[in-house]
Amino acid sequence: MTSFSIKKYDAIFYELWNQFVSEAKNATFLFHRDFMEYHSNRFKDHSLLIFDEKEKLIAIFPANEVANTIYSHQGITYGGLIYKEIKLDKVILLCKEVVGYYHQNGFDTIQIKTMPSIYHQKPAEEFLYALFLMKAQLIRRDSLAVIDSRNDLLISKGRMEGVAKGIKSQLKIVEEFDFESFWNQILIPNLENKHQAKPVHSLKEIQYLQTKFPKNIRQFNVYFKDKIVAGTTIFESNQVAHAQYISANEDKNELGSLDFLYHHLITEVFATKKYFDFGISNEEQGRKLNFGLSFWKESFGASTIVHDFYEVTTSNYKLAENVLL
């Protein structure tokens, strides 16, 4: 029987953790400690490192705690058990050990927002099977609008009319390292006026993250007569270009600014990227769909990949025992 040792994350593991993230088959830059810790004041970290009997790191579990619940991780878009090339039987044992560890340390439940398959370097759904064995319950399902570049790109007539407007308006697209104009002139006012909300990242936070991950966090702005009228923030990983923020001023339909911008990104900037992920159009924990937003994304040829959230009772770790014949 394989034996494991589990250690709670500490700063002494910073380099080891980040090196593991760079080599895992189901990790992106969001799991780098510099990304996880930009908002460390908001979350009480309880991440784990799992070692084999030879003290070799074989998996990590990014997580934070709130009362008697563990979350994987509330400050990251997706999560779960992160690992390299290990077989299904070992992943089952690893999950049992992780869930059992939290149970023994007084936590009743774990809430897990899984990583959508498009972000996997190779198939990595062993973790989902282990959750099934422990009777994890599906508590939320979001819908991602995703373009698969291996298929023919089917952009609707309506979107191409918007692109034509952008050309006629002589719009200019600029990739910039300055987030201030988009945040202060477009994004923040729009979120406040339409949703009484703020961006997940403050201007200071996104600027800091971009200095840490300059190849992964990219800002594209649209200008009309030297005035910013639209923009988007892209989080780029190995296989996926993900639209983190999309926003435009009130003239977007007349100018075609967002159609013009996204046609450029999809057909030129990220044309060779395996997937383009527009993100979700859901509200109320996945129970509602913003039809207009979803329709706009699908008009570029995007279709649906689901993003599932599970809750597992920690005492169920025992259910992963004696499953191998």
Score class of each variant (00 low, 15 high):
T2K: 02
N18D: 15
V21L: 14
R33P: 03
F35S: 13
M36P: 03
S40L: 06
F43L: 09
H46L: 10
I50S: 02
K54W: 01
L57T: 12
I58K: 08
I60P: 03
P62I: 10
A63G: 13
A67K: 08
T69M: 12
Y71V: 07
Y78E: 07
E85Y: 07
L88W: 01
D89S: 13
V98E: 10
H103F: 12
N105F: 14
D108M: 11
S117Q: 03
I118R: 08
E126M: 02
L128F: 01
L131P: 00
L138A: 07
R140N: 04
R140V: 00
S149W: 03
R150H: 03
N151F: 03
D152L: 00
L153A: 00
L154W: 02
S156P: 07
R159L: 03
E161Y: 11
V174H: 08
S181N: 14
N190I: 11
A197N: 09
K198Y: 13
V200P: 00
H201E: 14
L203C: 05
L203P: 07
A230V: 15
Q239F: 05
E250S: 14
D251Y: 08
N253H: 15
L258C: 13
D259M: 01
T267W: 02
V269E: 15
Y275R: 04
F276V: 13
D277P: 06
E283A: 01
G286I: 02
G292P: 13
F295G: 00
S303P: 00
I305Q: 06
D308H: 08
F309D: 02
Y310H: 09
N316W: 05
K318A: 13
N322F: 07
N322V: 02
